[in-house]
Amino acid sequence: MKNSNDLPSVLPIFALPGALMLPRAPLPLHIFEPRYLQMVEDCMKTPERLIVMAQPRGGAAGDRLNAIGCAGRLTSFSETEDGRYMITLTGISRCRIGEEVSGFAPYRRATLEWTDFERDLGPAEHDAGLDRDAFLKVLRRYFADEELDVDWNSLAAASDEALINSVSMLCPFEPEDKQALLEAPSLTTRRETLVTLMEFALRGGNNEDIM
């Protein structure tokens, strides 16, 4: 998909609090609710195989959606013996979510606008201001504090975009913080937001300087 004109104007919405998907990044998902099983089955019948991930504003899947989500292409699928699906969505582009569309589907669908996010359909972004050593230092402290295990060799070798986006998706931030990372206008802004969130968490949620 080379430009926004290639993208559908209506897509299914997967409203999942705390789940963040970003362009060109993979998001593994475990699907077991009947409505979302149906959504995946319907998605696989379409040529684009796209689903929009969105954050509910109130933290529950039935609440109003945030205005911006991210569409991902279904790039991996497997089924368990008891009928659950293990899938991977790979981010394609962010989108502005419009009116919800009623119909016979058991899951939510909505109209979408893509024109503000043409950059997402281009090449991977670079962060010219990234101090990788300083970033990884904060990251190590944060992951140790949260008791998270990661493959540090893979992170160190990752591109700017893969590093920043994978960490943004992995970190256990609140849904509104995940939304701020999604809406960051550039990779540099996302990295700055990410560092601010990690440093805030390391301070225990107060504004005192980190010792």
Rank of each mutant, 00 (worst) to 15 (best):
D127A: 12
E192D: 15
A157H: 02
T90S: 11
A144F: 07
R119L: 13
P8H: 10
A144S: 09
M44F: 07
A144L: 11
K2H: 11
C171P: 00
T90A: 04
A124D: 15
V101T: 13
L11S: 06
A162M: 09
L29K: 02
P172C: 09
R24L: 09
F14Q: 02
A124V: 13
L139G: 04
N5W: 13
K178P: 06
L74W: 08
R132L: 07
G122N: 08
G72N: 13
L29G: 10
R191E: 11
A105P: 01
A25M: 15
L202R: 01
R190D: 13
M198N: 06
A158N: 01
A180I: 07
P185E: 15
L170P: 00
T80G: 10
K137F: 13
Y36K: 02
D42N: 14
P26A: 06
R96V: 11
C43N: 12
V150S: 01
K178T: 14
K45W: 05
A144P: 00
G103C: 05
M44Y: 03
E146N: 00
K45P: 01
S4C: 12
S159P: 05
A19M: 09
E118Y: 07
E41R: 04
L155E: 06
P17M: 09
N5K: 12
N3W: 09
M21R: 01
E48T: 11
K45Q: 15
D82C: 08
S93W: 14
F32W: 14
A157V: 09
F77I: 07
S76H: 13
L194Y: 08
E113R: 04
S93Q: 12
T88Y: 05
M53A: 11
F135K: 00
A134R: 02
A54Q: 05
V138K: 00
F104A: 10
M169C: 13
F14N: 04
V101P: 03
C95G: 14
V167M: 03
P17C: 08
P28W: 08
R94Q: 11
L11N: 04
P175C: 13
R35T: 14
L139F: 10
E41W: 01
P47N: 05
P17Q: 07
S168A: 15
M44T: 14
L11Q: 03
E161Q: 15
S9L: 10
C95K: 02
P12E: 15
M211C: 02
V101H: 03
L197M: 14
M169N: 01
P8M: 11
A15V: 03
N206A: 01
G58R: 05
E125C: 03
L74V: 09
Y85H: 11
E99F: 05
R203A: 15
F173L: 14
M21K: 00
A54N: 08
L50C: 08
C95N: 08
P34C: 10
A61G: 09
K178N: 14
T46I: 03
P106Q: 10
T193R: 01
S166K: 04
E192V: 12
I210N: 05
F200D: 14
E79V: 12
M86T: 10
Q55V: 05
D149T: 06
F143R: 00
T111Y: 10
